[in-house]
Design a protein around this nucleic acid. Structure first.
Lengths: 207, 207
DNA sequence: GTCGATTTGTTCGTATGTATC
DNA sequence: TGATACATACGAACAAATCGA
């Protein structure tokens, strides 16, 4: 008699711990930066061993709910809506995976700019002459994206962009485009031009 | 002299453990389902304590690189490209967050269908008369998305869709649409119709 | 600048629960 | 039933970092 109809039916201590701590934070409306009880206190409060508490804390730390610092304590931080495993575990990766992330990034870049038009979001004071294309582009997207009702498009952009930067992906893209071209087209509300540019960028040749 | 220019400069054991295990898996091209050495063996091999090994394993388990089963062992599994913290830690959530995820989901649904057109992906044998709209819709997207060069759009759809289902979000959407409408329009390659339908769905009223 | 208290990081030994044969 | 292998869990101890008196 197999029980292949049920997976992970046994809850484990550390899962309970993560649940409790998340509840503690969200119910208590604890602000980011606030210190939470020490591992030993949590161990007493939740009536589990310190080891189990630590396993739970690891999970929350990795999801960016918390940050632990030796000698100081454990602090609440701002959890992202999306986590990219590659951002946590730096491993060897083939170009194909990165291209996939790149296309997702560009999809969200496009959505951010188009929604920026619709919601008439104006971006001023962008002086990035010294910076490279992708840095500037990301700055623009952040200025727009933060003002959108839905900030998840931007979150996904930032998560993928960070990954692509750390894996040094952009250098392998063949394209010739000044950032100003994008910036000016956005300010002039040339929707069609922007769509065209972003499409070309998305379909750019990768070395 | 403060060292605020550097965060997390001290690597911790469990981080080293995760890195090593990931390397072990990817370099050895270990197939999903394969058993990895026991915690005690890993502890000896990596020359760290059992607790540290376990903290590392927790991380990889949560990112779906691994799965541990008591009494059996720890097994390699297929890691996703995106992780949604809400899918791991079930906590109370306000509707606003879910709407954000919903819009991201719809963005990717649209991308999957449009790319499905371009790449002339044909979907047959879809008999879902007994199922509800979202189940059928997701089935269609999966049939198309799996055949795309870039499967990350589908991954993001599935991750968000799973979340929305578990949080029982769809019942709060006001819309009246038969799945057949979408299916027929896709088969007839009515690109404009599809775009229109998906836009309406994305902008649907939420209760 | 030193000392002591606090707190996380890490290790080890032991006991228990679960699956397989 | 028993034996073995393995993950789960606990608690005590010590190391290392931080902070304030």
């Amino acid at each position: 008699m197999k029980k292949d109809y049920q997976i992970r039916n046994v809850p484990r201590m550390f899962e309970e711990v993560t649940r409790q701590i998340v509840d503690y934070i969200s119910e208590g409306q604890i602000e980011p930066g606030t210190k939470i009880p020490t591992e030993r206190k949590l161990s007493e409060l939740l009536e589990v061993s310190r080891s189990s508490v630590r396993e739970g804390l690891r999970i929350l730390e990795m999801l960016n709910y918390l940050e632990s610092r030796q000698g100081e304590g454990t602090f609440v931080s701002v959890a992202p809506a999306f986590v990219l495993p590659l951002n946590i575990i730096k491993k060897e990766t083939d170009q194909k995976e990165l291209v996939n992330y790149y296309q997702v990034a560009m999809l969200h870049a496009k959505e951010i700019m188009l929604l920026g038009f619709d919601q008439k979001i104006i971006v001023n004071e962008l002086d990035l002459r010294e910076q490279d294309f992708w840095y500037s582009f990301s700055s623009l997207l952040n200025k727009i994206g933060k003002q959108l009702k839905n900030t998840y498009y931007l979150e996904l952009w930032n998560a993928t962009h960070q990954l692509l930067t750390e894996y040094d992906f952009y250098k392998s893209i063949e394209f010739s485009l000044e950032f100003d071209t994008i910036y000016i087209n956005y300010r002039n509300q040339n929707k069609n031009n922007i769509e065209l540019i972003l499409l070309k960028l998305k379909e750019a040749k990768i070395n």
